[in-house]
Design a protein around this nucleic acid. Structure first.
Length: 285
DNA sequence: TGATATGTTATCTT
DNA sequence: CAAGATAACATATC
């Protein structure tokens, strides 16, 4: 699902494509997904596109932002006006195929002078909000960015983990403590660090904390390079409609019953905090 | 048919 | 009151 690497991929691509374009009209097909008065942004030019945690911000020249959260199944697809041919069509068309746009899951269409930005969202958990600041979408509550090596320091992580005995996986997924990690990368980072997801946070030793931090940073950065994860059923697409490729690099996520890549054992699955949790009992402790 | 998937928040419990 | 746990949100898939 869209976590930091997926949103970063979208942010980078949108910044290139939208910068300087003018919003002509906003068509809200499903009002549940759009908050604010679209007249405030019609006619505005895009200054740049940025990201905080899993939220994308389209910054406009009048100082307003379009804040977008994709939640579980949101997609942002940009199609140039003259681009009739639909690229990156899935062989077998699932609910997340973007061959034809708009489709039945298109909730908002933002028409620019040079193309259309389609917001698709099957489950409609996600949203687009017109805001004046990050605070309006909870920005002040967020912890440091998980890929910010300065802010997300060893000392910071050590301090956060020392405060609680809850499972370490739950803590690293808590956006108020560290921003950007979701279920996929929490599982992957813990495997890479050799730490069981259920381990009490306060029981981690200095060396384990160091390894966990390094694993989080390296997994996220590699996933950004691979342009995110589009697993079997997954909604995530780049703004062209193309899938990401980090699903080919997953070690444990979604692999219950399969061989562990590090030993002879099998990947186990448990539920932690109501989320699927994947690990190897041999390699993680 | 019902269990399952997920990010965030609201709400309940300790 | 805060921390922690859990339900709710929507819907397609197996």
């Amino acid at each position: 699902m869209p976590e930091l690497p997926e949103v970063e991929t979208i942010k980078r691509q949108l910044d290139v494509v939208l910068k300087g374009l003018r919003i002509e009209r906003v068509k809200v097909i499903n009002p549940k997904c759009f908050q604010g008065d679209q007249k405030q942004i019609e006619g505005q030019k895009v200054k740049k596109v940025s990201r905080r945690a899993k939220i994308t911000f389209i910054e406009l020249e009048n100082g307003l932002y379009l804040a977008i959260h994709l939640k579980l199944t949101g997609q942002l697809i940009f199609r140039k006006k003259e681009e009739k041919e639909q690229k990156f069509c899935d062989q077998k068309e699932g609910p997340f195929a973007v061959c034809e746009l708009p489709n039945k899951f298109t909730r908002v269409i933002i028409r620019f002078d040079k193309g259309n930005l389609f917001y698709n969202d099957l489950r409609m958990f996600g949203w687009i909000k017109i805001v004046k600041s990050l605070e309006e979408v909870g920005g002040e509550k967020l912890g440091p960015e998980a890929i910010d090596e300065k802010e997300f320091s060893f000392d910071y992580l050590k301090k956060v983990l020392a405060k609680t005995s809850r499972p370490v996986k739950i803590i690293i997924m808590d956006q108020q403590k560290i921003a950007g990690i979701g279920n996929i990368y929490a599982n992957e980072a813990l495997f890479k660090a050799g730490i069981l997801p259920s381990r009490s946070s306060s029981s981690l030793k200095g060396l384990e904390i160091k390894k966990l931090r390094e694993s989080i940073i390296s997994v996220l950065k590699e996933a950004i390079e691979k342009k995110g994860t589009s697993d079997k059923d997954e909604a995530f697409r780049q703004i062209t409609g193309e899938k990401g490729s980090f699903q080919n690099c997953l070690m444990v996520y979604g692999k219950a019953g399969e061989d562990c890549p590090g030993c002879k054992g099998k990947i186990k699955r448990i539920s932690l905090g109501g989320r699927g949790t994947f690990f190897c009992e041999e390699c993680q402790n």
